[in-house]
C-alpha cells in the first residue's frame, strides 16, 4: 500500500502545481508571470478563451477540459493517498474515455457545441476513473504470481 500512496502523492502534487500554473493569470493578472504561465501551458492546451473558465473576466491558462483533467488528477491522487485500496472498474474507465471522445468529436464537428461544464465534467470523470483503475490493475498484476503453488516436501 505504500507504493500506492506514493503514486497518489505524486499525482496530487503534480496536479496541484499544474492547476496553480493554470490559475496564475487570474492570481497575478499583470506581469510577465501570467504570460509565462500561458506560454508554458501552450504546448499542452489550445487555451481558447471561449472554451475556458474565467474568473473576474480573466480566463484561466488552460481550457475547461484540461482544468477538469488537472482537478480530476488531484482528486484521484487524494483518494489514493487516503484510501489506497480504492479501485475502479475497467468498464467505468472505458465509459469515461468514450464520453470524452464523444465530447471532443462533437466540439470538432459542431461549432455550436459550447458546453464548458460538460467538457469540465468529462475531464474530471476521465481522470477519476482511469487513474484508480490503472493503479489497482497494476497492483493486482504484481500480486498474482504470489498464488504460485509451493512444492510439497
Amino acid at each position: 500500500m505504500r507504493g500506492t500512496r506514493g503514486i497518489g502523492a505524486a499525482l496530487l502534487a503534480l496536479a496541484s502545481v499544474v492547476l496553480v500554473i493554470s490559475f496564475l493569470p487570474v492570481l497575478v493578472p499583470v506581469g510577465s508571470l501570467a504570460a509565462a504561465s500561458r506560454a508554458g501551458l501552450r504546448g499542452t492546451c489550445h487555451q481558447r478563451p471561449e472554451r475556458s473558465f474565467d474568473v473576474g473576466g480573466v480566463p484561466l491558462g488552460a481550457c475547461a477540459r484540461c482544468t477538469g483533467l488537472h482537478l480530476g488528477g488531484m482528486l484521484a491522487g487524494l483518494l489514493l493517498v487516503v484510501r489506497p485500496r480504492t479501485r475502479s472498474s475497467a468498464a467505468l474507465a472505458a465509459v469515461a474515455t468514450v464520453a470524452l471522445g464523444a465530447d471532443v468529436t462533437a466540439g470538432i464537428l459542431f461549432a455550436s457545441w459550447d458546453h464548458p461544464w460538460l467538457r469540465f465534467a468529462s475531464g474530471v470523470m476521465l481522470a477519476c476513473s482511469v487513474l484508480p483503475w490503472a493503479v489497482a490493475s497494476g497492483r493486482d498484476a504484481l500480486a498474482a504470481p504470489m498464488l504460485r503453488a509451493e512444492p510439497v516436501a
Binding site: 505524486a10 499525482l11 503534480l14 496536479a15 502545481v17 499544474v18 500554473i21 509565462a36 504561465s37 506560454a39 508554458g40 501551458l41 504546448g43 499542452t44 488537472h70 488528477g73 481522470a127 482511469v130 487513474l131
Partner: peptide, 12 residues
Amino acid sequence: FNAMAFSFFGLV
C-alpha cells in the same frame, strides 16, 4: 512550467 505540465501527463 512546461516540464511541470508534461510531468503530470507523463505520469498519467
